[in-house]
Amino acid sequence: ETGKELVLALYDYQEKSPREVTMKKGDILTLLNSTNKDWWKVEVNDRQGFVPAAYVKKL
């Protein structure tokens, strides 16, 4: 879809709370919100949640 910003997972991340999502290094995720410098909201496999901003980079 146009207008979607994507990020690349630089590291594996295992969710530690229900508000977070698990990702694997190399995953491409849809970026939903990056206003917080530490935690970015992403969508992966129809799930939305937060990942550490340092673990992903914008494509």
Rank of each mutant, 00 (worst) to 15 (best):
N36S: 09
V44Y: 15
V51Q: 00
A54S: 15
T35Y: 10
A9L: 02
T2E: 13
L6Q: 12
G3Q: 14
L29Q: 01
K41P: 01
G26K: 02
G26S: 03
G26I: 01
R47K: 12
K16Y: 05
N36W: 06
W39A: 02
S34Y: 07
G49D: 01
S17G: 13
D46Y: 08
A9V: 11
K41A: 08
N33I: 08
K37V: 11
K37T: 11
G49Y: 05
Y11W: 09
E1Q: 13
E15P: 15
K57A: 13
V51I: 09
T2V: 14
K24R: 13
S34E: 15
G26Y: 06
K24N: 08
T30Y: 12
K57Y: 10
Q14S: 12
D46F: 12
T30G: 08
D12E: 05
R47Y: 05
W40H: 02
A9D: 00
A54D: 09
R47C: 06
W40Q: 01
L59R: 03
G49R: 02
G3V: 14
E1A: 13
N45I: 11
N33H: 08
N33E: 13
Q14M: 15
V42K: 00
N36I: 06
L59H: 06
N33K: 06
E43R: 10
Y11S: 07
S17T: 12
A54C: 12
M23Y: 02
K24Y: 12
S17I: 04
K58E: 07
W39Q: 02
N33Q: 10
V56W: 01
E1P: 14
W40I: 05
D38Q: 11
G49W: 04
Q14C: 10
R47L: 07
P52Q: 02
A54V: 10
L8C: 09
L32K: 05
Y13T: 00
I28T: 06
R47T: 08
L31I: 05
T2C: 14
T22Q: 04
Q48T: 11
R47I: 08
K16I: 07
K25G: 06
S17W: 06
E1S: 15
K4S: 11
K16P: 04
L31G: 01
E20K: 04
K16V: 07
G49H: 02
V7P: 00
N33W: 07
V7S: 02
D38I: 15
E1M: 11
N36E: 11
L31M: 03
K4P: 12
V44R: 15
Y13K: 00
L59P: 03
F50W: 15
E15K: 14
Q14A: 14
G26W: 07
K57H: 10
P52I: 02
L29D: 00
E43I: 09
E43T: 07
K37Q: 12
W40N: 01
V42S: 00
